[in-house]
């Protein structure tokens, strides 16, 4: 493809008396306004939060000067058994939800990958959940789960023969959260897997057909290799998002029953805006930020590797 049309070097660099087309100082001028807004609204708060983590401070008493504590906010958090419970809850939710999303997402992909009339409309129905407001989804999951009028306890009650309230037991509450999160985000995994499918080699597929390769073999050798990369991206992406999930927990269980579904984000929210222990909340938030930075780096790494394999970066 290349070489058919070779332009002189001067022309490809598009250089005139006004300088090159891709002048880097001009480039910075274009980027600067966006970066200023991002720094003010994002970087400054993050630094501020790191600072507040060292103080005892209450955001409802702005006049009271912060009291320097050193590392004791962090030491308190580390020795607090409740915090470890939040960590395990968060982990359980991520694990359950991401596994379920992959399973359902894969099933949806297997069903929907071939074109058929009306596919756009049907896909709209499937994709809608991931575009809905999480608060709305959380609230209407309550509508299904709450007895006596909820569909879920009614159906379960009919099967088991006695009234059921999933939100009354820790396991049921956690399961409700996982199902809600997975319902919303399985379509996302489906989208990712479909993007992977579209890069399955046509020639290999045809060859496999001619060889009459069995279904499993065809999947394992021809199809799965193109899915691996996106699957890894999808898992990392969903882990990050689930780690940050707040709205669903807030609206469905609000941490209950007791504190059995309280996650790190609801704990931070509670500390910051119910108890107004802003310093402690910041310290915990900084810990979350650290976890996310680690996860985000894994995600970036996966992207870089994927781009190296298939030289068609987005």
């Amino acid at each position: 493809m290349s070489g058919a049309l070779t332009l002189p070097a001067v022309q490809t660099a598009a250089k005139t008396s006004r300088g090159t087309f891709a002048d880097s100082t001009r480039g910075w001028q274009l980027i600067a306004p966006a970066m200023v807004v991002l720094c003010l609204m994002n970087l400054v708060p993050i630094l501020w939060s790191i600072g507040m983590g060292f103080f005892r401070y209450r955001a409802d008493r702005l006049r009271t000067p912060p009291h320097f504590l050193g590392l004791s906010n962090y030491l308190d958090l580390l020795t607090d058994d409740d915090i470890w419970e939040r960590v395990t809850n968060t982990g359980q939710m991520i694990l359950g939800s991401v596994l379920l999303q992959i399973a359902v997402g894969a099933a949806l992909t297997g069903l929907f990958y071939r074109p058929f009339p009306g596919r756009r409309l049907v896909l709209m129905l499937v994709l809608a959940p991931m575009l809905l407001s999480t608060v709305f989804v959380g609230t209407f999951f309550n509508f299904f789960i709450l007895p006596p009028f909820g569909l879920v306890p009614m159906l379960l009650g009919a099967v088991l023969g006695h009234p059921v309230n999933p939100l009354a037991s820790p396991a049921g509450a956690m399961a409700s959260l996982i199902v809600a999160d997975a319902w919303m985000w399985s379509p996302f995994v489906m989208l990712m897997l479909m993007a992977g499918l579209s890069s399955v080699s046509k020639d290999l597929c045809e060859a496999a057909e001619i060889d009459r390769a069995g279904r499993w073999n065809r999947f394992r050798t021809v199809i799965f290799p193109s899915l691996q990369g996106v699957l890894l991206l999808a898992v990392l992406f969903r882990i990050i998002e689930s780690f940050n999930a707040f709205d669903l927990v807030f609206t469905i269980t609000n941490g209950g029953p007791g504190t059995s579904t309280e996650t790190l984000s609801t704990e931070i929210y509670g500390d910051a805006f119910v108890l107004f222990e802003t310093g402690r909340a910041s310290a915990l938030a900084n810990f979350s930020t650290f976890v996310i930075i680690v996860l985000a780096n894994l995600y970036f790494q996966a992207i870089r590797e994927r781009n190296r394999d298939s030289p068609a970066p987005a």
């Binding site: 991002l38 940050n244 985000a296």
Partner: peptide, 24 residues
Amino acid sequence: FYTLAMRMIPPLTTIIPLYVIFSK
């Protein structure tokens, strides 16, 4: 990548300081 990371940071990490800063 830095821009991308900004969107992944837990929203509460920035909301708490933003609340304080804007109140002040």
